[in-house]
Amino acid sequence: MFRNNYDNDAVTFSPQGRIFQVEYAQEAVKQGSVVVGLVNKTHCVLVGLKRNAEELSSYQKKIIEIDSHMAIAIAGLASDARVLSNFMKQQSLGSKMTYGRPIPLDRIVGQIGDRAQTNTQHYGKRPYGVGLLVGGVDEAGPHLFEFQPSGLTHEMSACAIGARSQMARTYLERNLDKFMDCSRDELITHGLRALKETLSQDKELTVDNTSVGVVGMAAEGAKGRIESFKLYEGQETVPLLEALEQSESAGAGEGESMEVDS
């Protein structure tokens, strides 16, 4: 029933020094629907494609707010994500209670990374079957992190995980230098464009299946230091999807480039 003798559990190395159970857990991430995250100098945007189990059922939750300065987008086992997000909420709240400070992103990402690592070194545990994109702002500015079941975490300029996410990553790689200095709204459009790349022929981005989350530094002269996390779902995504459509029709004439204003 097993592919080899070395993939029964997460505490056995293969002769090549691999841990198959962890690699299989990474596969669970690829089963989940795609989420995309990207940052520029001021903002972090998370977008997700929501699936519904059947025609009449509701859509799943892809983006979870952790605190006013931070959110996660998930691909893979949603229940594992809930364990991690509950933990993150506790840690974030703890930081605000004891220091009056929003928890720094690298700190909290390190903490879930360490938790995930523990699950790969002790018998009787299993690796988490979920990948996360953690986006937010702290005193050092906006950040995006990728979290993997192995406990690996990376700070990214942009990232996509989940089913068919390679298409989105290709888009992001090609447009990396374009969105570094772009506006908040343009960043959202870039995120949606990357998301759209992953869709199969018969699929569309709709108000039902699209989730968008934005968090960033506050604009000059605004009250407070940060623009708190905002989740757009349902009808609220209409203007965002319209902007996407506009950018595409504008961009159609000139190939790769994108001019939202023209």
Partner: peptide, 10 residues
């Protein structure tokens, strides 16, 4: 490993 990694971090 990826162009999307933020340079100078990690």
């Amino acid at each position: 490993t990826s162009k999307l990694l933020k340079p100078g971090s990690n």
